Simulated scan of single mutants.
Amino acid sequence: MANEKEAQIAGLVKGALKGVAVIFGLFMISHFFVGCATIDASHEGIKVSKVGSDRGASDIENVTGWVFYFPLTSFIEQYPTFTQTKDYDPFTVSAKGGTLFKIDPTLNYHMVKGQGAAVYRKYRKELPDIENNILRTIVYNSYRDVANTFTPDSLVNNRVGFEALVEAKLQKALTADGFAFENITSNLTPPESLQAMIDAKNTAVQNALRLNNQVAAEKASAEITVTKASGIARARIIEAEAEARANELKQKTLTAMLIQQQWISKWDGKLPATQLGGGSNMLFQVK
């Protein structure tokens, strides 16, 4: 009986080992022959075929969620569709005349949803490789082409217009490649010698404007003083003319009656002792 039980136990163990071996074998087969990937909402997934003469260029399938595939014949590529920030190493571009300016750009962009298959067909690279090569070239060419249309002075004094033209070129180029431009910072830096010359020129212009303003202010002040003095003088002339006119009027109003009233006011009440003429009319001397 003991031998029989031992044989049964041995048979069970042997069967369990076979089951484990089968499961392990199936796992290994699935590992080599069946793959699984998860595509979340912030990425775009494409299933690319490894077979065929064109090796995936024409046989691409957009996929989402849980995706099963055969690693021997296909693979999954994922591209993020959220904002990407790429800080590029500085480079130089030349303005008209050959003056070199340093650009230290930082690009913000994202891949347009639905463009993953087109991006892969065109470049067949992962996003970091595309950023470091394709997109960097686009950024550099945009700055180079626009800078060549500016003189050094205008490039320094019109940075807003310069960057607007660069952004327009970037937007057009990135859209053609399946990406959406968001914004870019240029960190434009002119040569130190040019910046010193521009600063000196701006200082001279500001000083000239300040002097012109000062001269204009002094001129205006002088004009105000002259106007004020002229007004005072004219007021005095008008006052004098008015007084003279008043005196003239007073002289004209001195009638015989007024003279007689003045004579009466000065008479002491005594009659004269000498009669100068006949009749009732007498002439008295007013003292």
Rank of each mutant, 00 (worst) to 15 (best):
L211I: 11
S186Y: 08
S221M: 07
K201H: 04
N187A: 12
A208G: 01
L188G: 00
L194P: 01
A216V: 04
S221D: 13
A217N: 03
A208F: 03
T189G: 02
N212W: 09
N207W: 03
R210I: 08
M197G: 00
Q206Y: 03
K219F: 13
L194V: 08
V215T: 10
I184D: 02
V205E: 08
N202T: 10
Q206D: 07
A216H: 01
T225G: 02
L188S: 03
T227V: 09
P191S: 12
F181E: 02
A216L: 07
K228M: 15
T227G: 14
N213I: 09
V215K: 07
I198V: 12
A200I: 05
V205M: 02
E223T: 12
N187D: 09
A217G: 04
T203F: 02
S186Q: 05
F181I: 06
K201N: 06
T185L: 01
P191R: 07
T225M: 06
S221H: 11
N183D: 10
L209Y: 05
S221F: 05
K201P: 00
E182I: 14
S186V: 11
N187L: 05
A200Q: 07
S193R: 08
S193V: 12
P191Q: 08
S186G: 03
V205T: 10
P190V: 15
N207C: 00
K228A: 15
N202V: 08
A200H: 03
T225K: 10
S186W: 04
I184R: 02
A216Y: 02
A220N: 11
N207Q: 14
T203S: 05
A208T: 06
K201A: 09
P191T: 12
V215F: 12
A196P: 00
Q195F: 09
S186C: 05
N212M: 11
A220S: 12
T203I: 03
N187T: 09
Q195L: 12
K219T: 15
M197W: 01
K219I: 14
A220Q: 12
A220D: 09
L194G: 04
T225Y: 02
N212P: 00
Q195I: 10
S186M: 10
T203P: 00
T225V: 13
I198H: 01
A180S: 05
A220Y: 06
S186A: 15
A216D: 06
E192C: 01
I224G: 14
I198M: 13
Q206C: 00
I224Y: 14
N213T: 13
E182M: 06
T203R: 06
A217R: 03
E182C: 03
M197C: 00
T203D: 06
N202C: 01
N187M: 07
S193M: 04
S193F: 07
R210A: 14
E223L: 13
T227D: 12
D199V: 14
K201V: 06
K219L: 15
V226R: 09
L211Y: 03
S186R: 02
P190C: 13
E223P: 01
N213M: 06
I224E: 15
N207L: 13
V226G: 05
E223N: 14
F181H: 04
A217I: 03
P191W: 13
F181G: 01
